[in-house]
Design a protein around this nucleic acid. Structure first.
Length: 464
DNA sequence: CCTCCACCGGAACGTGAGGAGT
DNA sequence: ACTCCTCACGTTCCGGTGGAGG
C-alpha cells in the first residue's frame, strides 16, 4: 500500500489513515507500508474523517495538468522522429482512398519504437480523410496478444461488422465465412492491423493464410493486412506462401536513441506538466535509462510518469533525479510481482524450488554471484515439494516447458548447455533476488505447508 | 574416433471445462 | 440431454544434441 502525506492549503500535514506524521516517521519515510505490520489499530481516523482526507487530497495542488499524456496508449498529433515511417506507411496505404487494394505490410521494431502509435495514427487519418471524401475505407485494429487464437480473431473481425458470433462453439470455418460475407456485403477497402502478429503464430498460421488469400474470394470489397511484430525472425516460421503474401512491403522501425527519447519526453512533459516541474537532468536520465533498454519510448514515458507520481506523493511539486531512480526500481519490482502473483500453482512451486536451491549454501555460482542450477536438480526438488503438498507431479517434459516460460517472463534465466559426458541440460539462475521472489510467493496459501516449515528442516526433508 | 550422458524439444494425442446448437 | 466445437493443460514417445572421457 502506498502512503502519502499531502500538504493542505494552510500548509499543515494531513494525517492520512490516522497515521500521525510525527508519530510514525519510519513508516512514512519508507516507500511502501505493509498494512499487516503497521499498527493502525487505536488511532484509525481519530482526528480526521475519510471525507476530510479526500477533500484535502483533492484540494492539494497537483503538478499534473494532464496525467494521461504520459501513458504509452496516448497517441499525440505529432510523433517526433517518426516522419520517415509515417510517410512510408502513408504512401503504401493511401491507395485505399483511390479504391485500390494496398499491399500487405509487415512492420518490425522492438517494443516502444512507435510501431503501434504510427500505425494507428495513420489508420485514423486514413479513415478520417476517407469519411470526408465519402470513400468507404475501414481500418480495424486487433491486438493478437489479447485476441490470441484464430477463432477469437475471426470472431472479433466479424463482430466489428455487426455480426453476432458466440464466444466459442462454432467451427472456425463458419466464423471465417461470416466475416467474409460481412466484408463483402458492400464496396469498401478494409485495412486490418494485426498488432503483435507473432503471438498469433503460436496457434498456427492457417488464419493468416486465409486472410492473406481473402481477396481472391471477394467480389466487392478489398482487404489489406498490416502485421506488426517485435520479433524480426518470426516470418522464418511462417508458411512460405503466407510469408511472401504478407510481407509484400516491409518497414523496420529503428530504436530511438537517447536524444530522440529526450525530445519525445520533452513533448509529452510540456503537455503533462506545462511548466518547470522537472529539470533537464530528469528528462535526460529517463531517456538514458530507456535508451539502454533498446530505445524503448514506452519505458521512458513510464519512468517519467512514475517519477512524477512518486514526487507528488512526497508532497513535492518538482521531480528530482532521485525520484527517477526510485521509479526505476518500483517499475521493475511491480513487474516481477505482477508476474509471480499470477503464476499457476505448479509454476509457483517450481519457482519456489528454484529460490530454495538458490539459497542453498554449497553452490556453483556465476561470476555475478548467482547460483546455477540444472533441470534435473530443480526437478528433483520439485518432486519432493509435490510430495509434501500432496500435489500431482508433472513430468519432466512439462517442467522443462514451465522453466522456459519463467525464462520468457524474465524471472529466471535458462540457457541450454551441453556438458559433454554429463549430458545436456538447462542452466537455470534467478534473475530476481531470491528473497524478493520469496516474499511474493508467501502470499499464496496453497504453499502454506511448505512455508510453515523451518528452512533447516525443510532442507533436510527435501534432501538438500 | 566412438560412446554415452542427461537432457531438449517436436509431434501426436488425451482429458476435461465450457459454450452453443439441436 | 446430447453433440460438436475450441482451448488449456498435460502426457508419452522418441529422435536429436554435442562435448567429456575412454
Amino acid at each position: 500500500m502506498w502512503c502519502c502525506s499531502p500538504v493542505t492549503e494552510n500548509g499543515s500535514r494531513l494525517s492520512y489513515y490516522g497515521l500521525k506524521y510525527n508519530y510514525m516517521p519510519e513508516i512514512l519515510n519508507s516507500d511502501v507500508v505493509d498494512v499487516n505490520s503497521a499498527t493502525f489499530g487505536g488511532c484509525f481516523l481519530r482526528n480526521t474523517s475519510i471525507a476530510e482526507v479526500i477533500e484535502g487530497l483533492l484540494e492539494s495542488k497537483s503538478m499534473f495538468l494532464n496525467r494521461d499524456v504520459l501513458r504509452s496508449t496516448y497517441v499525440p498529433e505529432y510523433l517526433p522522429h517518426r516522419d520517415r515511417e509515417v510517410e512510408a506507411l502513408l504512401k503504401i496505404l493511401v491507395v485505399a482512398l483511390r479504391g485500390d487494394t494496398p499491399s500487405n505490410i509487415l512492420i518490425y521494431g522492438k517494443t516502444g519504437t512507435g510501431k503501434t502509435a504510427v500505425t494507428t495514427h495513420v489508420g485514423d487519418e486514413l479513415e478520417n480523410v476517407g469519411a470526408k471524401r465519402g470513400i468507404p475505407c475501414k481500418v480495424l485494429y486487433m491486438n493478437c496478444e489479447v485476441i490470441d487464437t484464430q477463432y477469437r480473431l475471426l470472431a472479433n473481425l466479424a463482430r466489428s461488422f455487426g455480426k453476432r458470433i458466440p464466444m466459442t462453439g462454432w467451427p472456425t470455418d463458419q466464423v471465417y465465412s461470416e466475416f467474409r460475407s460481412a466484408v463483402d456485403s458492400t464496396e469498401q477497402v478494409v485495412v486490418i492491423i494485426l498488432d503483435e502478429i507473432d503471438k498469433l503464430m503460436k496457434k498456427g498460421d492457417d488464419v493468416l493464410y486465409s486472410l492473406s488469400r481473402i481477396n481472391s474470394t471477394l467480389d466487392h470489397a478489398k482487404v489489406s493486412l498490416v502485421g506488426i511484430s517485435n520479433d524480426l525472425t518470426f516470418t522464418e516460421f511462417l508458411d512460405p506462401r503466407v510469408r511472401s503474401s504478407l510481407g509484400e512491403e516491409e518497414i523496420v522501425f529503428p530504436p530511438y536513441n537517447a536524444d530522440q527519447l529526450s525530445d519525445i519526453l520533452r513533448q509529452r512533459a510540456e503537455m503533462a506538466f506545462g511548466n518547470e516541474s522537472l529539470s533537464n537532468e530528469v528528462i535526460s536520465l529517463c531517456a538514458a535509462l530507456a535508451a539502454r533498454e533498446h530505445g524503448d519510448a514506452r519505458k521512458a514515458l513510464d519512468l517519467l510518469r512514475v517519477s512524477a507520481e512518486l514526487a507528488e506523493r512526497d508532497g513535492s511539486m518538482v521531480v528530482h533525479v532521485n525520484n527517477v531512480r526510485k521509479a526505476q526500481s518500483k517499475i521493475e519490482s511491480d513487474r516481477v510481482e505482477e508476474v509471480v502473483v499470477t503464476l499457476p500453482t505448479q509454476s509457483k512451486l517450481l519457482l519456489y524450488g528454484i529460490t530454495l536451491l538458490d539459497k542453498a549454501t554449497e553452490s556453483m555460482r556465476k561470476p555475478s554471484g548467482r547460483k546455477i542450477m540444472s533441470t534435473g536438480e530443480v526437478y528433483r526438488i520439485y518432486k519432493r515439494m509435490c510430495a509434501v503438498l500432496d500435489l500431482d507431479v508433472l513430468t519432466q517434459r512439462r517442467i522443462t516447458e514451465l522453466i522456459s516460460e519463467l525464462d520468457m517472463l524474465g524471472i529466471v534465466n535458462a540457457t541450454v548447455v551441453n556438458r559433454g559426458r554429463y549430458g545436456m541440460t538447462k542452466e537455470i539462475s534467478l534473475e530476481t533476488p531470491a528473497d524478493h521472489v520469496h516474499r511474493m510467493l508467501v502470499t499464496d496459501t496453497r504453499l502454506q505447508p511448505l512455508l510453515d516449515m523451518k528452512f533447516n528442516s525443510f532442507q533436510a526433508q527435501l534432501g538438500m
